[in-house]
């Protein structure tokens, strides 16, 4: 549960607080636990909600603009800066401990609205529908934010010097 909270919250103290809040919520809501759901799934959702509540209560730091990280196009719709393949595969990059950290750091640089959707969909593996419910937004908004978050993360990772070596 702490590992889940740490993915959403940058400060260790906040992550620990969120887990504590989640335990309290679980204690209070145990009567409402529906036996047909898996306990691990139920608790997972509770800790994610606690982490998101904590995230919303934190003062926002200045965020990078998502627009700056999206691909740019010429008037005719062609790439303004044509993308190229990375020199190394994801598998080979993951063997480097420092690079794993660097990728984590890039995820943390994403604006919270986008980072949260990326974490919920790609990492915590909630469905589009579940993510929309958790964030109280439409499914279409989830899809748009996820795609933009992935595009922005691609740009940030692609700019790492290790990627082009």
């Amino acid at each position: 549960m702490l590992a889940v909270a740490r993915r959403f919250l940058r400060a260790e103290e906040d992550a620990r607080d969120a887990v504590q809040d989640a335990f309290l919520s679980a204690f209070r809501a145990i009567d409402r636990f529906e036996g047909d759901a898996r306990l691990s799934t139920w608790l997972h959702r509770i800790v994610v909600n606690a982490a998101l509540m904590k995230l919303r209560s934190r003062q926002r730091k200045p965020e990078i603009s998502i627009e700056e990280l999206l691909p740019k196009y010429l008037e005719d719709g062609h790439h303004a800066d044509p993308p190229s393949l990375w020199q190394r595969s994801a598998e080979s990059l993951l063997e480097q401990h420092e690079l794993r950290h660097a990728v984590r750091d890039q995820i943390d640089r994403l604006p919270d609205n986008y980072r949260t959707v990326l974490l919920l969909r790609d990492i915590e593996e909630f469905t589009t529908d579940e993510t929309a419910q958790i964030l109280d937004v439409t499914e279409n908004a989830v899809k748009i934010r996820l795609h933009r978050a992935r595009q922005a993360l691609r740009e940030l990772i692609g700019a790492l010097p290790e990627i082009q070596r």
Binding site: A3, S40, H79, P83, R100, D122, I123, R150
Partner: peptide, 30 residues
């Protein structure tokens, strides 16, 4: 080719994100 490169690096990005955020101790057992 630039769009093909974009698609492949987009897929690599998703793969990298999932991998670096996965819990080193694995998922919580039921």
């Amino acid at each position: 080719p630039p769009c093909l490169a974009y698609l492949k690096t987009y897929e690599e990005t998703v793969k990298l994100g999932k991998s670096v955020c996965s819990d080193p101790q694995g998922p919580v057992p039921d």
